[in-house]
Design a protein around this nucleic acid. Structure first.
Length: 437
RNA sequence: GCGGGCGUAGCUCAGGUGGUUAGAGCGUCAGGCUGUGGCCCUGAAGGGCGCGGGUUCGAAUCCCGCCGCUCGCCCCA
């Protein structure tokens, strides 16, 4: 079909049949966050471009080529200096909001979570969209390695709770900004890479100048061979970072959360320090990271706040849904209504409408026929909507003052007086709920 | 931005070497049971065969271009 308009490339409509899945994931996440003492925060979908240049890094791919500009369309020439962009990641906006409203002054440790759309201008592929949705957490104010453990544990618990098991946790520490830590490692790495520069791909030869750490996760064969023997950051951690990392590992061991050390794990955003982690799932194809995050001890200071450490993660909801599918989690189905009013004769119209109103007021999800179709068609429709009860109103019912109630599950039906109908249905439905749980 | 695959009804797909009004299953609607769902049977509606151009007496089918989708590279959730 050659329709005039389609959803923009890399975006997806989430249709009514899919909503149950989304709700399950979102509500499970909210519940899990509440258990861990995190509160929800919501920030605008667009922010000042500078916020991301500052935090993610000017050389990061996100800032260089993946952001959508936002401006009043008709006046775009005049708005060149108003540099707004759709949020390309979740952490910086949250940090900005906490700083702006002084929340970091009100509590020594602030723990928040968000569920939000994220936008990146990329070529779509399996598990990668231009608009996707992330749920994430940020814990700001403590240097404790056990907080890193908590953050990873929350991610672990959450994914398990929605049936997204089967992932592997990759763990690494990329050190801090102390000159005898990451900078020293960086120097060693550069020297090593330079000694084998000819074997590196074009991109990596460029990265050698801009962001040498990212040569480590290049997938080119030649680079892999070089990286295999490259020095690893954990061997160059300063005393503090080393102890921190040991405690993180021990903490995870204590909880029985398994992980794999991955010295080549470096993340694409500049603000990360010390602990970094990715939850990857083997069944996900090329875009295999379901959840990723780490510590960002310099971020708040970078935004003009006091030197305040933090740690958090972001988790791609679409990818969680893909994992659930790969795990063949049975697809959730939800019914549209509990009751349906079938109108077998026009003389019942008025009463039907009144009854409909009363049932709804009693909290019962109810609908009726508006198309004047045959009773058979109305029954079929009611069945399709998943109605447990169909209330039939026709000439007989109007004459003798009752409603024919059909229990669609049991295939039984009976006569119910007008004045009893709402309470009867309400009771029957609440019993169902009780026996179900 | 660069590669590979694909583009026929709402959905999933058939349509050897080009040949009369383009098919199936599911879904939708109607009927079989004129007041009753899920099964079964019958029938109907619904497609300018992604768009544009070319070859040909004739193209969904061959050629070219464009667009879109999809899977990879890059990077990430």
């Amino acid at each position: 079909m050659a329709l005039k308009f389609k959803a923009p490339r890399g975006t997806k409509d989430i249709l009514p049949d899919e909503i149950a899945e989304w709700r399950l994931v979102e509500e499970s996440f909210r519940k899990k966050c509440a258990q861990y003492g995190y509160r929800e925060i919501r920030t605008p979908v667009f922010e000042d471009l500078g916020l991301f240049e500052r935090t993610a890094g000017e050389t990061s791919d996100i800032v260089q080529k993946q952001m959508f500009a936002v401006m009043p369309y008709g006046l775009r020439q005049q708005f060149e200096d108003e540099r707004w962009v759709l949020r390309p990641e979740g952490t910086a906006p949250v940090a900005r909001a906490l700083l702006e409203h002084g929340l970091l002054q009100q509590l020594p440790l602030v723990k928040v979570f968000y569920i939000a759309p994220i936008f990146r201008y990329e070529r779509p592929q399996a598990g990668r969209l231009r608009q996707h949705h992330q749920c994430g957490i940020e814990a700001i104010g403590s240097l404790s390695p056990l907080l890193d453990v908590e953050v990873i544990a929350l991610g672990f618990d959450f994914l398990m709770s929605v049936g997204a098991n089967g992932f592997v946790i990759n763990l690494n520490s990329i050190g801090c900004l102390n000159e005898n830590c990451r900078p020293r490692y960086r120097q060693v790495l550069i020297e090593y890479l330079k000694s084998r520069e000819a074997e590196l791909c074009e991109d990596c030869q460029r990265r050698l100048q801009t962001n040498p750490l990212r040569v480590l996760d290049c997938k080119e064969e030649g680079c892999q061979a070089v990286v295999k023997d490259a020095p690893i950051s954990v061997d160059f951690l300063c005393q503090d970072c080393s102890e921190h990392f040991e405690t993180v590992k021990k903490g995870l061991d204590e909880l029985g959360i398994r992980y794999e050390l991955n010295g080549r794990l470096v993340r694409g955003l500049d603000y990360y320090t010390r602990t970094v982690f990715e939850f990857v799932h083997p069944k996900l194809g090329a875009q295999s990271t379901v959840l990723g995050g780490g510590r960002y001890d310099g971020l708040i200071a970078e935004l003009g706040g006091a030197l305040t450490p933090g740690v958090g993660f972001g988790c791609g909801i679409e990818r969680v849904l893909l994992v659930r599918q790969a795990n063949s989690q049975t697809k959730l189905e939800d019914t549209t209504v509990d009751a349906f009013i079938a109108i077998a004769s026009p003389v019942a119209e008025n009463l039907a409408q009144k009854l409909l109103y009363e049932l709804r007021a009693a909290g019962i999800r109810t609908d009726r026929d508006y198309l004047g179709r045959s009773l058979k068609a109305q029954m079929r429709y009611a069945d399709k909507l998943g109605a447990r009860f169909v209330l039939i109103l026709g000439e007989d019912e109007m004459r003798d003052g009752f409603v024919t109630v059909r229990d669609m599950q049991k295939s039984e039906q009976w006569r119910e007086p007008f004045d009893k109908i709402v309470s009867t249905i309400a009771n029957a439905l609440s019993e169902r709920i009780l026996t179900k749980t």
